[in-house]
Computed example of a mutant assay.
Amino acid sequence: MFTGIVEALGVVKKLEKDRSNLHIFIESPISDQLKIDQSVSHNGICLTVVGVEGDVHQVTAIDETLQKTNLSGLKEGESVNLERCTPANGRFDGHIVQGHVDQTATCIEKTAQNGSWLFTFQYDPSTHNITVEKGSITVNGISLTVVNSQADRFSVAIIPYTIEHTNLQDVEVGSVVNLEFDIIGKYVARLLVQRN
């Protein structure tokens, strides 16, 4: 389990295609502290560490993951948000994040607001995922608060610290991001669908 508080920014050093899988090699300040078999959130996707060499670690994304996330468009040199699992005795600073991406969204607006930024993301509502005003959403593994919740889009207000320490700094209009909707909201949405 994660909390959506990004620990470090990694940089994609190498990508290797292996049949339908993609091996991703990431350099980061926490890579040398990782262990094989450890679960780490990469842009909100829980992936297993399969190799560590110095300050570079390796994970593998299977076809299912590549089809449902933005990892299929990953390029060498790009930044990746990283978060290790929450320790049982640690602080719970964000919200409950499973590391299971529900779907992707596209940035349709990015507006500077005198020291902060407002991002608007649009997603396919046919999956019945929902946001609520002032509720939680995970964007590329970052725990954020929803503003302007609508049926197929929402906005998030971003402070300078978050821009500086996550890959939101690279997100522009047209960028595709990973979304994990709030787990409580997902259960409520499922119950409502079953009732209809």
Rank of each mutant, 00 (worst) to 15 (best):
I130T: 11
D170F: 15
F92N: 15
I130N: 09
L9W: 06
V139Y: 01
Q194P: 08
K68R: 13
L9G: 01
H95A: 08
Q150W: 02
L15Q: 04
V139I: 05
Q38H: 08
I158E: 02
V176N: 08
E164F: 08
K35N: 11
T138K: 06
V147K: 09
V6N: 01
E83I: 14
N114T: 05
T60P: 03
F154C: 05
G90N: 04
V56F: 14
L74Q: 13
G90W: 07
D55P: 07
T48N: 04
N148I: 05
F154S: 04
D63S: 14
A112P: 15
Y187H: 14
F154G: 03
G77T: 09
K35F: 11
L74H: 13
I163V: 14
K13N: 05
D37L: 11
T162A: 04
T86D: 04
V156G: 00
T162Q: 03
S175W: 02
V56C: 11
C85D: 08
Y123Q: 07
Q169T: 12
F119I: 10
N178Q: 06
Y123L: 02
V132G: 08
V146R: 07
Y187P: 15
E83S: 03
A157W: 06
V40E: 00
G135F: 11
I163A: 13
L118N: 14
T3L: 00
Q150G: 12
A189N: 14
F121D: 15
V193R: 01
E53G: 02
V59I: 09
D102V: 03
K68H: 10
I5Y: 09
L34H: 12
D18P: 11
I130H: 13
A151K: 05
N43F: 03
L15R: 00
P29N: 08
H23T: 12
I108Q: 01
S143A: 00
S41Y: 00
F181W: 12
A151H: 07
E16T: 10
A88Y: 11
L9I: 04
T86W: 00
H100A: 15
T145W: 02
E16H: 02
S126Q: 11
I36M: 07
T138E: 04
D182H: 03
H128L: 14
N43V: 02
L47V: 01
T3K: 04
G99I: 01
G185P: 06
Y187N: 12
E53Y: 02
G94H: 11
